[in-house]
Design a protein around this nucleic acid. Structure first.
Length: 342
DNA sequence: AAGCCGGGGAG
DNA sequence: CTCCCAGGCTT
């Protein structure tokens, strides 16, 4: 009943998205579905679309992507966040190349790098037409409201999964999953759900409570700690020194400005890439990460022509092409405006 | 089970 | 400003 109502609504109201086939069609390209699903992990559709277009234009097929250079992929991914996804993307493409084709079962997909329970179910259903129980944040919210689940997340996940399984149809499971996502994105929204437009309103226990926006209940989260750091602008002859961050950990594998430690107290000039006449500026740059807030001071110096340093000397005028994560791009822009002002 | 891992959109 | 988002990996 619920799936019928939802699929009818989807056939008339599906969003047109670059990685989607027409509703009811089985023409979805597994490469494009896989790439979109990885990009969409914890990332909104509007943010993903330009990256998806850029990637599929440059690497139109699985074979083309598997042959890409690591540095090119990391640079193209810059700004999208969660950089382990980009590293896993390449590892996954190379694993699939070794296998000869992409697995078409949940179990086979689940074994690939960067593919967890959600993504395996989504690809199996959307790209390969299999029945799979697809549970993402949209489904968690929609199902929590449909059944007025009072257990707070994440403890309610087993109930949510069981309910989702019970309403997932045997055919068109991929369209059903995407319909749940469209419903969660446009109607059953986190803040102010548009229940008057909802095709499932008459089936919804949460609507009957009168306060569907209270679902899903969630455990409170701890406040984020504040950290302080310093970034170093080492300039020589119109070029600035960039380094490659360690492969694992925060912003792993990405090109970056040299930086000292990020700690609870301002580290000053600790961790400078070279001894020099560093000028510590008054201006700071603020940036929020998932589990801490950062405030970085900016230190600048001119480096002599014979000093040999680890890293790349990048043309200051071409910094936009360096593929810097956002926190470094912010700082670089700040340095740029200070240079113009002086 | 809990912590780590980005960034931007929306209210 | 706060909350949230087509989650996965590690410990």
């Amino acid at each position: 009943m619920i799936s019928r109502l939802l699929l009818d609504w989807y056939d008339a109201n599906a969003r047109r998205l670059p990685w989607r086939a027409a509703p009811g069609s089985n023409a979805a390209d597994p490469y494009r579905v896989w790439l979109s699903e990885i990009m969409l992990q914890q990332t909104q559709v509007a943010t993903v679309i330009p990256y998806f277009e850029k990637f599929t234009t440059r690497w139109p097929t699985f074979e083309a992507f598997a042959a890409a250079a690591d540095a090119d992929v990391m640079t193209a991914w810059a700004g999208l966040g969660y950089y382990a996804r980009a590293r896993n993307l390449l590892a996954c493409a190379r694993e699939v190349t070794r296998l000869g084709r992409m697995p078409d079962t949940e179990e086979g997909l689940r074994a690939l790098p960067g593919v967890g329970a959600y993504t395996a179910a989504a690809i199996a259903a959307i790209a390969f037409g299999r029945r799979a129980v697809v549970v993402d944040a949209n489904v968690e919210r929609v199902v929590s409201r449909l059944f007025a689940i009072e257990t707070p997340l994440p403890a309610s996940r087993p109930q949510i999964r069981a309910h989702t399984d019970a309403i997932t149809p045997d055919t068109r499971a991929g369209d059903f999953a995407q319909a749940m996502m469209d419903l969660g994105s446009g109607i059953c929204t986190a803040r102010a759900p548009r229940c008057l437009l909802c095709p499932l309103r008459d089936q919804c226990d949460g609507f009957r409570t009168g306060t569907p926006e209270l679902f899903p209940y969630k455990a409170k989260k701890a406040p984020k700690p504040q950290r302080y750091g310093t970034m170093f602008w080492a300039e020589r002859d119109g070029h600035v020194l960039l380094v490659r961050r360690p492969a694992k950990g925060l912003l792993g594998g990405m090109r970056a400005l040299p930086t000292g430690p990020w700690e609870a107290v301002a580290p000053g000039l600790e961790g400078a890439p070279v001894a020099a006449d560093w000028r510590l500026h008054d201006h700071t740059v603020a940036h929020g990460f998932t589990h801490f807030d950062l405030q970085v001071a900016l230190a600048a110096a001119t480096i002599g022509p014979h000093e040999v340093l680890e890293g790349e000397w990048w043309p200051v005028a071409d910094l936009a092409s360096a593929g810097l994560p956002t926190v470094f791009a912010k700082a670089a822009n700040r340095f740029g405006s200070m240079r113009c002002a002086s």
